[in-house]
Amino acid sequence: MTETHDVALEAGGFDFRVRVYPATEPNGALLVWLHGGAFMFGTLEMPEADQVGRRLSAAGVTVVSVDYTLAPLDALEELGPPDPDADMPSPEQMRAEMEAAGPRARFPVANLQIVAAFDWAVANARAYGAEPERVALGGASAGANLSAGAAMRLRDRGTTAPSLLALVYPSLHDGILEPNAETAELLRTVPSARLFTPASRSAINRNYLPDGDDSRGYAFAGGHDLTGLPEVLIVNAELDSLRPSGEAFAAELAAASVDVRVVRERGAMHGFLNEIGHPAAEHTLALLEDAVRPR
């Protein structure tokens, strides 16, 4: 069992923490990782955070999982009733749980905290058997969005930058992108409660960035100039209404001369990293391990 420890940090005017999963036998790599949760919820204990930390650290990669400040709960009702088959709490249960989670804040607080967490990881990499130049950045769902936004800020800062950006079932544009005919047909087989709609996505995004002003792409990197970003791995869930965003972002990266690899997890729905043992989760964990491993 991986022995973890938490480190208190501050950025954006708020205290936050990171949880470190030291590699059992370090291979020189370190991954700064962000859970998802529509910017509003999610914890370091959810499988999407903890499973990644434990599995990758056992494979030689130190993981720094970021407990960033969450956005307010104002958009919770817009998400609609949960799918009973998805083993998700109701909006009322989520509100009760999250109201005790501490202070909340909108953009740019989480963005600034991720940059601070990345800087901490670079400064402390050698203490965990990792190389400062092999610190990767990534996340799932909203965490993937936050990772991409932080990578944009780090690029513009012009100092240290991630060795790799890993984005799992990401939403990278401010809104739902139209699916092609093949994707639209596949999405008809998915329970409506397992899909984001234009209305729910808009509510989530405006809750995070109320005025939609994002000229530099720090909130939603998609659709902006991506030149100079590091190598990117994108893992999309096939049965996910956010998949068009991941695919469009991959095309934008290629057009900006950024090396990108795109993988589609066939038959998988959004959030599969929260299902321990799910075939797509197992495959994605292997992809992450291979992508961040020093060459």
Rank of each mutant, 00 (worst) to 15 (best):
T4G: 03
A8I: 10
A8R: 11
E10Y: 00
D15K: 14
R17P: 12
V18R: 04
R19V: 14
V20R: 01
V20K: 06
P26C: 02
P26Q: 06
A29N: 01
A29V: 06
L30F: 07
L34P: 04
F41S: 13
F41C: 13
S57M: 10
S57H: 05
A59N: 10
G60M: 13
V64E: 03
S65L: 12
V66D: 02
Y68T: 07
T69E: 00
A71M: 12
P72T: 11
L79V: 02
P81G: 04
P82N: 01
D83H: 10
P84W: 08
D85N: 14
A86S: 13
M88A: 15
M94I: 15
M94S: 06
A96D: 15
A96L: 13
R104C: 04
A105N: 06
A110N: 04
N111G: 15
L112R: 15
I114C: 01
V115R: 06
A116L: 09
N124M: 02
N124T: 03
R126I: 09
G129L: 10
E131C: 10
P132R: 07
S141V: 00
N145A: 13
L146Q: 08
R153P: 07
T159K: 05
L165N: 05
V168F: 12
Y169Q: 10
S171C: 14
L172P: 01
D174N: 14
L177E: 05
E185V: 08
E185Q: 15
T189N: 05
S192D: 14
L195I: 07
T197F: 04
T197D: 01
P198A: 01
P198K: 03
R201A: 15
N205E: 13
P210I: 13
G212M: 13
G212A: 14
S215T: 15
F220Y: 12
D225K: 11
D225E: 11
P230D: 04
E231M: 12
V235Y: 00
V235H: 02
V235Q: 03
A237N: 03
L239T: 04
L239A: 02
D240Q: 08
S241A: 13
L242G: 03
G246P: 05
E247C: 04
A248K: 09
A248T: 12
F249M: 01
E252I: 07
L253M: 06
A254D: 09
R261S: 14
R264H: 10
E265I: 13
A268T: 01
M269A: 11
H270V: 02
F272T: 05
L273N: 01
E275Q: 12
G277S: 11
G277D: 10
A280Q: 08
L285C: 04
L287P: 08
L288K: 04
E289M: 09
R295L: 12
